[in-house]
């Protein structure tokens, strides 16, 4: 079946079998291999992407379901050569080790900050509880998200002042 989908702002299309999962549409058809697959029971969240802005486990969505929709992956976070504050936060605070869960974590926390610009530690921990990390023990991820939240709100403040 033919799928038309906007990925990271760019229209894409592919012919796939109906059983194709969104994660593999992205990885195999569009070569966006930042979206990882770490389990087969919708447990790990390494495959998290934004589907019309909502974070979902792309291993548990069919490619056909996103026909006509917009999908954002980790490759879509950087803008004009500038890392997203979350990417910078993860880097600055050692929020990753092997890097396998990182794209999923970034996409989930991206959505978290949309909903809660100033999350507490407990709120961050609950928000990322669908994403497993085997390396970091989560603590530095929490710090990274807090830094990103602070930078994003500072940036917003600057923009408001400019206006």
């Amino acid at each position: 079946m033919r799928i038309r989908v906007t990925v990271n702002g760019r229209p894409r299309s592919a012919d796939v079998e109906p059983r194709t999962l969104l994660a593999y549409l992205l990885r195999d058809e569009f070569n966006l291999t930042g979206t990882h697959v770490g389990c087969d029971t919708t447990s790990c969240g390494a495959c998290t992407v934004l589907w019309d802005g909502v974070p979902v486990k792309s291993c548990t969505v069919l490619a056909g379901q996103v026909d006509g929709a917009a999908v954002t992956t980790v490759e879509g976070l950087e803008h004009d050569g500038q890392l997203h504050p979350l990417q910078q936060g993860f880097w600055d605070h050692h929020g990753l080790q092997c890097g396998f869960c990182t794209p999923g974590m970034l996409m989930t926390t991206h959505a978290v900050l949309q909903r809660r610009p100033h999350p507490t530690e407990a709120e961050i921990r609950h928000a990322i509880s669908g994403n497993l990390c085997r390396c970091t023990g989560y603590q530095n991820i929490v710090t990274a998200v807090q830094q990103a939240a602070a930078r994003l709100s500072a940036r917003d403040t600057v923009q408001e002042v400019k206006v």
Binding site: V74, L83, W91, L96, G99
Partner: peptide, 19 residues
């Protein structure tokens, strides 16, 4: 010191086996 390898990992540009 910040990790050098993270430049690719935070961008989803790691190259794991299945990639």
């Amino acid at each position: 010191i910040k990790r050098k390898e993270d430049a690719r990992f935070v961008r989803g540009q790691g190259r794991y086996l299945d990639d």
